[in-house]
Computed example of a mutant assay.
Amino acid sequence: MKPVAVWVLASCLAAVVFASEQIPAQDLSVDQIVEKNVEARGGLDAWRKVQTMIWSGHVDSANAPAPDLPFVLAMKRPNKTRFEVTVFNQKSVRVFDGRQGWKLGPNGMGSATPRPYSMEEATSARDEQVIDGLLIDHAAKGVSVTLEGKDQVGGRDAYRLAATLPSGVTRHVWVDARTFLDVQIDRQVRTPLGQTVLVLVQYSDFRSVDGLQMPLSIVSGAVASDKKDKLTIDKVSLNPALDDGIFTRPAPPQMHQRKSVSIDVDASPVLPGAGHPSP
């Protein structure tokens, strides 16, 4: 799965320390691993039928002013997203229309003005495969996949795949060697201070939603930090009607709705991959 962007997480294996091993000659090929992953997640035909998706749940973030903040993530192919999180009855919003994105969050002065995505944020959002992730239908998306090795993820063997996107960015996807579900992905993310950090996103608590396997728990955080963000998905809706207008530049809140609330939309939890979240 993969879907929130709706807050970003990251990729670059050089800084990650895992116990890697070479894939034995008799082991599975990359095409076989991807094929088993697609089958484990519900099948290619079933995923192709999903054009829109909504997640609703709650988020716990080191950057949030309170725990268990309710969120809604709306996704529409190929890569439109709208992520809303509610803090003290105020909404912080990030939207991407497929080309450009905006961030809206009340600040300490009690006002809010939509701000455009940075160049790096827009590029990263264009790379996202918000409905089904990097592996499903990867050739049609222009994503090339190679097999690098095997690692231990959560105490279990996992195949480490390198997925190179049309933009040239390479991300790594770990596929559980027993269930063949993708359980981890990495990404490089640029912080508001201009630093580039490697973020790991881990997927767990997979459940069947109309025959598709969805991770209902997504934990993300920089490799070099102990602080983690956790998205818990309480409900998944497949193919709801979503008007393109909800993915356009958000309107500022009305004056009577404004309160003095501090929300940093630049430091929000990373969205899946997506991861997805993608899912």
Rank of each mutant, 00 (worst) to 15 (best):
M1Y: 11
P3F: 14
A5E: 14
V6H: 11
W7G: 15
W7K: 13
V8E: 14
V8R: 14
C12E: 15
A15H: 10
V16S: 09
S20K: 15
A25W: 08
A25G: 06
D27G: 10
S29N: 05
S29R: 06
V34M: 03
V34I: 12
K36H: 08
N37V: 05
A40N: 10
G42C: 03
G43D: 05
L44G: 01
D45M: 08
A46G: 00
K49V: 01
Q51K: 15
T52K: 02
W55F: 15
S56F: 02
G57H: 01
H58E: 12
V59I: 09
A62L: 08
N63I: 07
P65C: 00
P65S: 04
A66R: 10
P67D: 02
P67A: 04
F71S: 00
V72A: 07
L73R: 10
R77T: 08
N79F: 01
T81K: 07
V85F: 11
F88I: 11
Q90C: 05
S92D: 09
F96W: 03
F96C: 04
R99E: 15
Q100E: 13
Q100A: 08
G101Y: 01
G108P: 00
M109S: 13
T113E: 13
R115W: 08
Y117L: 09
S118G: 14
S118H: 05
R126D: 03
E128P: 02
D132E: 10
I136L: 13
D137A: 11
A139Y: 06
G142I: 02
V143P: 00
E148L: 12
G149N: 02
Q152W: 01
V153S: 01
G155I: 08
R156T: 03
D157K: 10
A158P: 01
R160K: 11
A162Y: 06
A162G: 03
A163C: 12
V169E: 12
T170F: 03
T170V: 10
H172A: 03
H172M: 07
V173D: 00
D176F: 04
D176V: 07
R178W: 04
T179V: 10
L181Y: 08
D182R: 09
Q184E: 10
D186N: 12
D186G: 02
V189I: 13
L193R: 15
Q195L: 09
Q195G: 05
L198A: 15
V199K: 03
L200T: 06
L200K: 06
R207N: 08
S208E: 13
G211E: 02
L212W: 04
M214H: 09
P215C: 09
G221T: 00
A222E: 12
V223H: 09
K227Y: 11
K228P: 05
K228G: 05
K230Q: 15
L231Q: 03
V236A: 07
V236F: 07
S237Y: 15
L238W: 01
N239E: 08
P240N: 04
L242Q: 02
F247S: 01
F247P: 00
F247N: 00
A251M: 10
P253W: 07
Q254P: 06
H256W: 14
H256S: 13
K259E: 13
S260V: 12
S260F: 14
V261W: 00
D264L: 08
D264F: 05
D266L: 08
D266K: 07
L271T: 13
L271E: 13
L271K: 13
A274N: 15
A274R: 12
H276I: 11
P279S: 15
P279F: 14
